[in-house]
């Protein structure tokens, strides 16, 4: 595995902190929604690939999850 479970958890916590900082200090910025959704997709993929061990699964499963997360996030940002 590329990341250990603990390293993955630390990155996830940092992403939560970064997200909170964005909410506190950059709410009025035009790219706010995009930053929030990019961080959400990052967390989604870290959980799926490392906690759910999909990094060890067939590439088709990884592709399905990645495409799904990106489509939902893109739809949210575009429809905002």
């Amino acid at each position: 595995m590329f990341l250990t479970l603990r390293t993955n958890w630390i990155i996830l916590m940092l992403a939560v902190v970064l997200m909170s900082a964005t909410v506190l200090y950059a709410r009025t910025w035009s790219g706010f929604a995009a930053v929030i959704m990019v961080l959400s997709v990052l967390k989604f993929l870290l959980v799926a690939f490392y906690f759910m061990e999909m990094s060890k699964a067939h590439p088709a499963w990884r592709a399905i999850l990645t495409v799904f997360a990106v489509i939902v996030a893109a739809a949210v940002v575009l429809m905002k």
Partner: peptide, 22 residues
């Protein structure tokens, strides 16, 4: 069981920003 539990994480990671933040 673990895969189902992580599904709850995945759903929340999409719901939280959409409902609470953006």
């Amino acid at each position: 069981g673990a895969a189902f539990w992580h599904l709850c994480d995945l759903i929340w990671l999409l719901l939280f920003p959409v409902l609470y933040l953006i």
